[in-house]
Simulated scan of single mutants.
Amino acid sequence: MKKILVTGANGQLGSELNVLSMNYPNYQWIFADRTKVTLDNLDLLNTQLESIQPNIILNCGAYTAVDKAEAEKELAFTINNLAVELIAKYASENNVKLIHISTDYVFDGSSAIALNEEAPTNPINVYGESKLAGEIACLNNCPDSIIIRTSWVYSKFGNNFVKTIQRLMQERESINVVNDQIGSPTYAADLAQAMIDILESSNWVPGIYNYSNEGEISWYEFALSIKEFGGYNCNVGGIPSSSYPTPAKRPEFSLLDKKKIKAIYNLNIPNYKDSLRKMFI
């Protein structure tokens, strides 16, 4: 029986994989939080991997505090780059299948069309820089790995935009949400299923893939959909990013082109509204 190690077990994606793992008893699942797989301590990390001896690694663990990363660059790079490099080396040396999760924040947001896997990268914040460095380290050290770039991840688990907006809409009569950042949300349960579908496929094609739900929207439009499904009475206003300054700049346009992953793995990717509705059921 193949042993699957899932890092970042308590995060959104790790939690959704944990739910889905019940449907796949043909694998031995190991869900590792930061005590079992310590991404910020590389010496310990190597020892932990050798102790677990997985056949497959789903690397969902990451430093994801986008604004905090501006002040914690070293920590962000340790987790998002150096730990990935170590995991990739381990995977390569031990014939371990590796799926590593990356982000749309590797792009600068200047595109006007959906970004495919060959689009030029140019991150505009520390988080994006650290994740791009992790992608490069992953492919350099384990050319047989699969990297999945995703965007705007949400889930019923963890902290995310959907849960924040739900809370604010219950607390306030009106809120403002930026309307000039364009992309598509990703329901973590859908991405988790896509990762398992890749594992279950007999077709392992290394390289970079994009995955998000279908649709092209702003955060403001996303908030309107949350209002609709939640039945909230809160008024929602759209504002430019300049009216909501944050320590880290965000790409204005980071819509991901999913043609490659759909073609190679025959995935049926749901529209963002259909997946958002599922979360509310």
Score class of each variant (00 low, 15 high):
Lys260Gly: 07
Asn213Trp: 11
Ala194Tyr: 06
Ser145Asn: 04
Asp180Ile: 05
Ser151Phe: 03
Gln193Gly: 04
Glu173Ala: 09
Lys227Thr: 05
Asp257Arg: 03
Phe253Cys: 04
Lys259Asn: 13
Thr186Ala: 05
Asp257Gly: 00
Ile269Thr: 10
Ala248Thr: 00
Thr186Pro: 04
Ile165Cys: 10
Leu199Met: 13
Trp152Asn: 06
Cys142Val: 03
Cys234Met: 04
Ala189Met: 10
Asn271Tyr: 15
Ser225Thr: 13
Ile175Cys: 02
Ile226Ser: 01
Tyr187Asp: 03
Gly237Gln: 03
Met195Arg: 05
Ser155Thr: 02
Leu267Met: 08
Pro247Ala: 09
Ile239Asp: 03
Leu199Glu: 09
Asn266Trp: 00
Asn140His: 14
Lys262Asp: 07
Ser174Leu: 04
Leu276Ile: 14
Asn213Tyr: 11
Ser184Trp: 08
Pro240Arg: 03
Lys273Ile: 12
Asn233Thr: 13
Ser225Asn: 10
Asn268His: 11
Gly158Met: 11
Pro240Ile: 08
Ser275Thr: 06
Ser243Pro: 01
Ala188Glu: 02
Asn203Val: 11
Glu214Phe: 06
Asp257Trp: 01
Tyr187Pro: 02
Phe253Ala: 05
Ser174Trp: 06
Ala263Gln: 14
Ile226His: 02
Ile148Leu: 10
Trp219Lys: 15
Glu214Ile: 08
Gln166Phe: 04
Ser212His: 13
Lys249Trp: 01
Tyr220Arg: 09
Leu168Gln: 15
Arg167Asp: 05
Ser275Val: 02
Lys227Gln: 15
Lys249His: 03
Met169Gln: 06
Ile148Val: 15
Val177Glu: 01
Ser225Ile: 00
Lys260Trp: 08
Gly134Asn: 05
Thr186Asn: 04
Trp204Tyr: 12
Thr246Arg: 15
Asn271Val: 00
Tyr220Asn: 09
Ser145Lys: 02
Gln181Arg: 09
Glu200Leu: 15
Ala223Phe: 07
Ser202Tyr: 04
Gly230Met: 11
Leu139Val: 12
Lys278Thr: 05
Glu252Met: 13
Lys260Pro: 07
Leu191Met: 13
Asn160Thr: 09
Gly237Pro: 02
Leu224Cys: 11
Asn160Tyr: 12
Asn176Asp: 12
Met169Lys: 00
Pro245Tyr: 02
Phe222Thr: 10
Cys234Glu: 08
Ile146Tyr: 06
Arg277Trp: 03
Tyr265Asp: 06
Leu276Thr: 11
Glu135Tyr: 09
Glu228His: 14
